[in-house]
Design a protein around this nucleic acid. Structure first.
Length: 863
DNA sequence: TTAGGGTTAG
């Protein structure tokens, strides 16, 4: 790279405001500002949201006590680096080949299909037709078409034949770049590497085409590091990268998880070297945003394209939709979709699958399903991806008849159910506890010659383990081993979580050792499972004979980064764990561990994450606060948070401060943290507020909990949760919900005391027990019900809706006018900070002007 | 040289 420091004009990583755009455009294109402004003012509505004041910062060093909240805090960020690898997309050949080449192609394929698996005939065919084939164009056609048909070994033999007979370096280079490109497209990056090396060593590979093809092949397999290495080699050998090279390198950043900053550096370099970006450059940059969830940056890029006069195509729009869907901007996605029509870019099956997935992710299942109808209505055929998406939605919703019906419909149009279809069905049935059906499906898929993959096995083992069906789990694991598949971080994390859920924390830690010995690095998900288990455990399993475990002792977490284990002499720990869990070998010798031990373990896990550079996120935060709530004492909880401040003073400092009692300084810090959390996606921010209010409520800091919940409310963390007739609590934790019930009733109180009438019917919604196996029997509902009874409110469970409490407005009015009600509703903290009296200007409730003079009981309320 | 699908934590 020419420069490791991005030039000042480049700021897409931090979401440019239009002002940033100005300077950038001016520097890069010397265009008049007036022209620029006119372009900006003509922006379409869907892309015209005001820029965020402070967009997500670039990655910060971990655990910096003074830093802003890192994007890694989001619980929605994927831990997968290589996200999408759709190998085998056909590449259409140009029409430069002769008709003879088409015949030769058919003959070559026939040769391989006539029982002569050696492909012996291919060389003969080529020899026979050599004189009639029109040089490299025909050969590259053959290679590409063989690749499109999955005839990889035939393509390689054909390539070797051509290379053996060709003497001209130019033609050899063309053949090599074609072959590398075909192999890259098929995900055969190692073979591509071999062809590349031979080409370079043979003297015909030192061309921009060969190098670019290799970079692209690396990109497609997510090998970003290697792509950059080859890029450097290319420049070192005196070759000048062209637009294709740069585009491929940007693609590598997206597929290899190098991030937007790196991609923008590539973009800078291409500008600096005089290579003008094109549509594909921008489409690739947009794809980088998709992986990183950078909606603002994507929007800016789109504007930049418009400004530069680069036309958008279906790729541009589909990628932009993908960013919107991935970053929880589903409404914007719909607006973009309607904009496509006005530009004459017709949505295709990719557009619909992207949108359907976006809707499903945001919980709009009805909309997702109706999109499929739209798709059929306008005549877009459902393809494999669309069908599998549909099957997964029905399976997740527990609508199994429909899931199976879609599977059959898929087969009826000639698309066989594949491993993705079966995995979706197994996961859905498994989550609903339909183990018999799971077994049948697993048998069926194998009978249909659909090979189970790593995901199939990890799903089954996890499903069975969580239910305590260890015999079944072990059988599946044994089969997995016999298949010779290699476990990955997800496989282990699922297993670790399953054991954690059964309270088998020590077994989980031993699995952690095992995975690291195999060279598999745990990630934030793995550690969060363990922290969560410690927070919840009252017992630890001592079912295992520790002396059998080479290299593992106590609960010590393996130090350092995972390193591959050269030998595997210690046997298979997983099978041993299952054996110990089987009936008759029960875990009767569990010993009680104290929360103090838990704390030491949690701190140890946190320390380990720090050492490994694994950044804790909102789920970690939530798990730790839950653990605090399970502490035997307030002092212990505050001590744990105090310790964690050493790692992250911003987040744990605020949590600790609020727990100790409100005062001005901590509240100001809290407000600044809330502002940063607001920049995260909605599920991250609601998880944050839920966890924080829960722990405060748990320890009797109810006033603090209410302040926090109201700040969440002010920042739209729970949109549409609050109106004068209805309080919707279904996205809140029980602590947040109870704090909100108090705040809402106080606001209703202000309406009453202003002499206004209440609506005829008031409702409090708790939802249907989303996280409970028994519909309508959620923890939230029970907590709210107990609260409503304890404060003597007239709200009662609605007969027609088991997740709704209702009361006539008149009854609420009468109750609020009773003498003791106001006192019951106003909340106090059990512990006050010595400087708590300095509290002033606390946040305004989202209430109307509540008459402070109503009662001295309101002294504590932030009005 | 560019776009969509199934997996882990709360």
């Amino acid at each position: 790279m020419a420069s490791s420091t991005p030039p000042p004009h480049w700021s897409l990583t931090t979401s440019e405001t239009s002002k940033n755009h100005h300077s950038r455009h001016l520097k890069n294109t010397q265009t008049a500002t007036t022209k620029l402004n006119s372009r900006w003012t003509s922006k379409k509505v869907s892309l015209d949201h005001p820029p965020h004041p402070k967009n997500a910062p670039t990655a910060l060093p971990p655990f910096s006590s003074t830093s802003q909240l890192s994007v890694d805090f989001s619980g929605k960020r994927s831990t997968r680096f290589v996200s999408k690898m759709h190998f085998g997309r056909p590449k259409f050949s140009s029409a430069r080949h002769s008709s003879i080449a088409v015949d030769v192609l058919e003959m070559a394929i026939k040769c391989s299909g006539n029982g002569n698996g050696s492909g012996y005939g291919v060389e003969n065919v080529l020899l026979n037709y050599e004189s009639r084939l029109c040089g490299t164009d025909d050969y590259t056609f053959l290679l590409r078409e063989l690749g499109n048909r999955g005839e990889l070994s035939l393509a390689m033999r054909c390539f070797e034949f051509c290379v053996g007979r060709e003497r001209r370096f130019g033609e050899l280079g063309k053949l090599a770049s074609s072959m590398i490109s075909i192999l890259g497209r098929l995900g055969k990056v190692e073979l591509a590497e071999e062809v590349f090396k031979n080409a370079v060593n043979g003297g015909y590979g030192t061309t921009v085409f060969v190098y670019s093809a290799m970079i692209s092949a690396y990109a497609k397999s997510g090998c970003c590091y290697e792509a950059f290495r080859v890029f450097k080699e290319m420049k070192d050998s005196g070759l000048k990268p062209n637009i294709v090279t740069y585009n491929a390198l940007i693609d590598a950043c997206g597929k290899g998880g190098a991030g937007f900053k790196r991609a923008s550096e590539v973009f800078d370099e291409m500008l600096k070297t005089g290579v003008q970006p094109d549509r594909i450059t921008f489409n690739s940059l947009l794809a980088v945003c998709s992986g990183a969830g950078l909606w603002e940056a994507a929007r800016d890029l789109f504007h930049e394209m418009v400004y530069r006069g680069i036309n958008q195509d279906i790729y541009t729009y589909n990628t932009l939709l993908d960013v919107a869907c991935n970053s929880n901007h589903i409404d914007a996605a719909f607006e973009i979709m309607s904009e496509m029509a006005t530009k004459g870019i017709l949505p295709n099956e990719v557009t619909f699958s992207t949108m359907v997935r976006g809707c499903a992710k945001s919980g709009r299942f009805d909309k997702a399903l109706s999109l499929f109808n739209d798709m059929k209505y306008i005549g877009i055929k459902l393809d494999r991806v669309a069908y599998n998406t549909l099957v997964a939605i029905y399976a997740n919703l527990g609508r199994f008849d429909e899931a199976l019906r879609i599977g059959n419909e898929m087969e009826a149009i000639g698309l066989k159910k594949d491993v993705v279809t079966y995995n979706a069905l197994l996961d859905g049935f498994g989550k609903q506890g339909m183990y018999g059906k799971v077994k049948d499906l697993f048998v069926e898929m194998k009978a249909q010659n659909v090979s189970p993959n790593l995901l199939t096995y990890s799903t089954l083992i996890s499903v069975y383990s969580k239910e305590g069906l260890y015999i079944e789990a072990m059988e599946v694991y044994t089969e997995f081993k016999h298949r010779g598949l290699k476990a990955d971080v997800v496989f282990y994390s699922k297993l670790i979580d399953a054991f954690c859920k059964k309270g088998l924390v020590e077994s989980s830690v031993l699995l952690l050792h095992k995975m690291m010995k195999e060279g598999i690095n745990p990630n934030v998900v793995t550690y969060n499972s363990i922290i969560n288990a410690y927070g919840q455990s009252t017992t630890a399993d001592h079912s295992l004979h520790h002396e059998q475990w080479a290299g593992s002792s106590e609960l010590t977490l393996t130090s350092g980064v995972a390193e591959p284990c050269a030998n595997n002499e210690e046997g298979d720990n997983i099978e041993r764990i299952f054996e110990q869990l089987l009936p008759g070998k029960s875990t009767s010798n569990k010993k009680v561990i104290t929360s103090g031990q838990d704390f030491a373990c949690i701190l140890q896990v946190f320390q380990k994450m720090h050492e490994l550079g694994i950044k804790p996120n909102v789920v970690t935060f939530s798990a730790i606060l839950n653990a605090c709530s399970r502490c035997s004492s307030f002092e212990e909880a505050s001590l744990l948070l105090e310790e964690l401040r050493l790692f992250d003073n911003q987040i744990y400092g605020v949590a600790h401060g609020l727990l100790m009692g409100l005062h001005e300084n901590v509240w100001l810090q809290a407000l600044s943290l809330f502002d940063e959390v607001k920049r995260m996606d909605s599920s991250t921010s609601s998880a944050f507020y839920n966890a924080l209010t829960d722990v405060l409520w748990h320890f009797g800091q109810k006033r603090g909990a209410q302040f926090v919940a109201l700040e969440g409310q002010r920042r739209d963390v729970w949109p549409y949760a609050w109106s004068s007739s209805c309080l919707d609590l279904h996205l809140m934790s029980s602590g947040a919900a109870r704090a909100m019930v108090h705040a809402w009733l106080l606001s209703i109180c202000s309406i009453v005391f202003e002499g206004k009438e209440l609506p005829e019917l008031l409702s409090i919604l708790t939802g249907w027990g989303k996280h409970s196996k028994v519909v309508g029997d959620g923890i939230l509902k029970r907590a709210v019900e107990a609260l409503l009874i304890s404060i003597g409110s007239p709200f009662r469970l609605a007969k027609s809706n088991i997740g709704r409490f209702t009361s006539p407005g008149a009854a609420v009015t009468a109750w609020l006018r009773e003498s003791g009600t106001l006192k019951v509703l106003s909340l106090q903290d059990e512990r006050n900070h010595p400087r708590g009296s300095q509290l002033f200007n606390l946040p305004l409730l989202p209430l109307t002007d509540l008459d402070v003079a109503l009662s001295s009981n309101f002294q504590a309320l932030p009005l």
